[in-house]
Each structure stands twice: as C-alpha cells, then as structure tokens.
C-alpha cells in the first residue's frame, strides 16, 4: 500500500530560491487545499480530545470502581447509575462509550504514532547506513529488508503478537517490526540518488566527515518521502491494531483501544445494539480519514512532478 507513496515520492524538492525556505513553501502549498485543511483541523480536534481525556469525560473507563455491570448495553442518551448521561450509550461491561472512545483514541493514536516514529527512526538508520556504507553491509541489510517485506504485515504481526502476548508495548513492537523495512527501503533509494549528486561529492572533497555528510546533507533530503510514509503508515498501523484486536491477539481488554472497542462491539452488530460497535468505528474512521486527507496533500505537495 505504501508503494504508492514510494513510487511517487522518490524525487525530492528541487533547488529552492533563498528567500523561501522549503517549509514555508510547503506550508503555503498545503493550505491551498481546503480538503487537506479540513483533515488537519479534524485531526487536531481528535488529538486534543485524546490529550484532554481525563478532563472532558464523565468516567474513567479503566477504573473498575467506576464501571458497573448494571449499566451495560444502555442505548445512547440513557442515564447511568452514577447519574450522568451516556450520550453514545454504554458497552457490554457498562463502560460509557463516549469516555471509552476518548480514552481509546489516546491508545490508538499513541500506538500509531509511537510505532511510526520508532519504525521511521530504525528504518532511516538502516537505509542511510546501507546507502552510505554500500558493499557487503548494504547487501546484508537489504536482504533483511527483503525478508521482512516478503511477508505481509498482517501475517507477521499476527504471529508476533501471538508469540509475545498482549500489551501496548508488545503491539508497538510488532508494528515497528512490520513497518521499519518500508522506511529503510525508501530512505536507501533516496539516499543513493542523493549520494551521487554533486553537492555530496563537493562536501566530501572538502573533507567533511562521513557523519556530517550523512546527517547534514543526505538525511534532510530523505525526509520528504519519510514524512509521506509516516502519514500512510500511521493510519495503517491504527487499522492493523484494530484488525489484530478483532482476531483476538490485540490489546488487553481492560484498557481498550478503539480497535478493541470495535471488536467487542462486533458481536452486537446483528443484535440491534449498533452503538457499541458503530460509534467507535466512526471514531476510528474519522481518525484514519483525517490522517489520510493530510497525507494525500502532503504527498502531492512533496512530489514536484505534479506541479504545474
């Protein structure tokens, strides 16, 4: 799925006039697209909801003292035992769904963002090393990348999480394992192109250290495709976590992510108690859509071939 991003984001920004930094240029282009801005606003709202969770929810859904089984499966708008109204209804164990969703957003976003960042760091390190070191190191590293990419993410994650057990840390680990190779492959490709460029040769002939060349000159040029992949992969990671939870190997039930909430609600889909699965599903959908809307524009902006 990331291949779209990879194929179309291989080229980096062309030479830019001095007075306009790449960032301002990027910002300007990004804000030209209303849909992308809508995506950004939506995303910011979702992130603030997640960050402010303890202050804007009537219930802490992780505290078993405040959750009562007598409140289970209440429809939207019902009043709960503790007196507040469950605007989105309650789930099968008596959690207020609104509170559950807001807290679940926290976990889903954290899992997506953390795994994306760790995978990007690992992938960039591997990709740059491979591109710069070349030779045997490159061959070995890239064979590992091939090994990783030769099996689909959902399969590896499924087997890994089944082996590691449950927990936020374990699922993040599994998601990093399935994602890093995408970054490594892309970064290496970009870095190889950059390395052959004249300014790198110039920098090297000036006697700059390898590290300096890599970090100051090659790495910044690889960031554009990495950013594109991050947006795609974060959305992908959040969806993958939900899928693993559906298959029964995801996050623990006591601190449910959106995926766990949906998976739990799944069994109520045919029973008419739609809210248990539909509302967390909508929250997940909005989150992923907002990221994808931004990602789409970022990719278009960072791909100069499409500009007229």
């Amino acid at each position: 799925m990331t291949d779209t991003a990879i194929t179309s984001a291989k080229k980096t920004l062309p030479a830019i006039p001095k007075e306009e930094t790449p960032f301002t240029r990027f910002r300007k282009a990004f804000f030209e697209d209303k849909v992308a801005v809508a995506g950004l606003i939506l995303f910011l709202i979702i992130v603030s909801l997640a960050l402010l969770a303890p202050w804007i929810t009537p219930q802490n859904p992780y505290d078993l003292r405040s959750v009562d089984i007598m409140d289970s499966r209440l429809p939207p708008g019902a009043t709960m035992g503790e007196g507040f109204t469950a605007w989105l209804g309650t789930d099968g164990v008596g959690r207020d769904l609104y509170s559950g969703i807001v807290y679940g957003l926290r976990i889903s976003l954290m899992v997506g963002a953390l795994s994306g960042m760790i995978a990007a760091s690992v992938g960039m390190a591997v990709g740059l090393t491979a591109a710069y070191a070349g030779g045997r190191v490159e061959t070995i590293l890239m064979r590992i990348v091939d090994l990783q990419l030769s099996l689909p993410a959902v399969l590896i994650a499924l087997i890994l999480v089944a082996a590691l057990g449950k927990g936020v840390d374990k699922i993040i680990f599994a998601l990093v394992v399935v994602q890093w190779a995408y970054y490594a492959r892309t970064v290496r490709g970009t870095a190889l192109v950059e390395r052959r460029k004249e300014y790198v040769e110039a920098a090297q002939s000036l006697g700059l250290s390898n590290a300096r060349v890599v970090f100051r000159h090659i790495m910044p040029n690889c960031l554009a495709p990495v950013i594109v992949i991050i947006t795609v992969q974060t959305a992908h990671a959040i969806a993958l976590e939900a899928t693993l939870s559906f298959l029964g190997v995801g996050l623990p039930q006591t601190e449910p992510s959106l995926g766990v909430l949906i998976a739990n609600g799944f069994q109520y889909m045919l029973s008419g108690k739609y809210w248990i699965s539909v509302f967390p599903g909508l929250a997940l959908l909005l989150t992923i859509v907002s990221i994808n809307l931004m990602g789409d524009r970022i990719r278009d902006v960072l791909n100069p071939r499409l500009e007229k």
Partner: peptide, 27 residues
C-alpha cells in the same frame, strides 16, 4: 461464552468490597 466480560464484571464486584482487582485475559 462472554468469558472476558465475566472476568471484568467479577473484578468490578471485588473492587467494591475493597479488593483492588486487575485482570488479564489470555488466549
């Protein structure tokens, strides 16, 4: 049937008599 939910509900009930109960469900 409903094993995870049962454990969660029982943990809620234990918590109400002062036993701070956590749960972990496993495959």
């Amino acid at each position: 049937a409903n094993d995870t939910k049962l454990i969660e509900a029982i943990a809620q009930m234990f918590t109400r008599i002062g036993i701070q109960t956590e749960i972990e469900t496993l495959p």
